[in-house]
Deep mutational scan, measured.
Amino acid sequence: SKIRITWGDKTWEWDGDDEEVWKRILEWARNLGDEELWRHVKEWVDK
């Protein structure tokens, strides 16, 4: 399956939905430097 994140007018996609993928997404969000996006992603990961 895919994980799709839409933020503003951008959309990103990742293949898979296991823990490793979420770790990569969390790292990606942090590297993007958008605090609010990172917080949202972290909330999803922690669920």
Rank of each mutant, 00 (worst) to 15 (best):
K2C: 05
K2G: 06
K2T: 09
K2W: 11
K2P: 08
I3E: 01
I3L: 09
I3G: 02
R4T: 12
R4M: 13
R4A: 09
R4P: 01
I5P: 00
I5C: 05
I5A: 01
I5D: 00
T6M: 10
T6L: 09
T6D: 05
T6N: 08
W7V: 05
W7C: 03
W7I: 06
W7A: 03
G8L: 10
D9E: 12
D9H: 03
K10W: 09
K10I: 11
K10Y: 10
K10N: 10
T11D: 05
W12S: 03
W12M: 08
E13D: 07
E13R: 01
E13A: 04
W14Q: 01
D15P: 10
D15H: 08
D15G: 06
G16Q: 13
G16K: 13
G16R: 12
G16W: 14
G16Y: 15
D17E: 13
D17F: 08
D17K: 11
D18P: 12
D18G: 14
D18L: 13
D18S: 15
D18V: 10
E19P: 15
E19S: 13
E19I: 15
E19V: 14
E19W: 09
E20H: 14
E20A: 12
E20P: 03
E20G: 14
V21D: 02
W22E: 02
W22Y: 14
W22Q: 03
K23Q: 12
K23F: 07
K23S: 12
K23I: 09
R24N: 11
R24A: 12
I25L: 06
I25C: 01
I25K: 00
I25G: 01
L26E: 05
L26F: 06
L26H: 03
L26S: 04
L26T: 07
L26N: 02
E27Q: 12
W28H: 02
W28Y: 02
W28Q: 01
W28G: 00
W28N: 00
A29K: 00
R30C: 06
N31Q: 12
N31K: 13
N31E: 14
N31C: 07
N31M: 13
N31S: 14
L32T: 15
L32Q: 15
L32P: 01
G33W: 07
G33T: 05
G33I: 06
G33H: 08
D34P: 04
D34E: 05
D34N: 09
D34F: 07
E35P: 14
E35D: 13
E35R: 03
E35M: 06
E35I: 05
E35N: 06
E36K: 04
E36L: 08
L37M: 08
L37A: 04
L37D: 01
W38R: 05
R39S: 10
R39A: 11
R39Y: 07
H40Y: 15
V41Q: 00
V41M: 04
V41E: 00
V41N: 00
K42E: 08
K42S: 13
K42V: 12
K42G: 03
K42A: 12
K42F: 08
E43C: 13
E43Q: 11
E43K: 06
W44G: 01
W44S: 02
W44K: 03
V45I: 14
V45T: 05
V45K: 11
V45W: 13
D46T: 09
K47G: 12
K47M: 13
K47D: 05
